[in-house]
């Protein structure tokens, strides 16, 4: 993946939590990416801004507008790639909690599609629960990503 991205961290004993710093016009914003188990081998991608010592550590409703969206998207795509490389049997579920977030997440995949499709199969899920191969021209309710199988 060649797009410019931020260096990210993850906890060496817990590959479910990743973090990086977005540096832009609003300053430095700590971004958290977390993979939550929904069922065995099926993980939800949760991401948002770290809020410091507040009781809820991640605000996943917030849109930072830090002026570095392509770099943030490329970083998130790399984190997904790392997670699936380490866990090739897993499927990642991606869904925005607002129409704006749904569109943003789809853009993350679309903008990094050329890099992602080398190693991963991408699928879109419509509002009725129908799954199809990812098509960047379609709008989806949710996305599924899985490491490519070698035939």
């Amino acid at each position: 993946m060649n797009r410019e991205s931020y260096a990210y961290e993850n906890h060496e004993n817990d590959l479910l939590v990743y973090a990086f710093e977005s540096i832009g016009k609003q300053g430095i914003i700590k971004k958290m990416v977390y993979f939550q188990e929904i069922s065995p081998n099926f993980y939800n991608l949760a991401m948002g801004d770290y809020l410091g010592e507040y009781e809820i550590p991640i605000d996943d409703m917030h849109v930072s507008d830090n002026g570095d969206m392509p770099k943030v998207f490329a970083t998130i795509a790399k984190i997904i790639a790392h997670f699936l490389h380490e866990n090739p049997q897993y499927t990642v579920f991606i869904e925005g909690n607002t129409p704006l977030k749904k569109a943003l997440y789809q853009r993350i995949i679309t903008n990094n599609r050329k890099d992602l499709i080398t190693f991963f199969d991408l699928f879109g899920v419509d509002s009725l629960g129908k799954v199809q191969n990812f098509d960047a021209t379609e709008s989806y309710e949710a996305l599924l990503i899985k490491a490519k199988q070698i035939f």
Binding site: S39, N44, A46, A142
Partner: peptide, 15 residues
């Protein structure tokens, strides 16, 4: 379940 609760519930519906 402080965050991601609604998404996980929806993902389970889709499952």
């Amino acid at each position: 379940g402080t965050f991601g609760k609604a998404k996980i519930a929806h993902a389970k519906e889709l499952l």
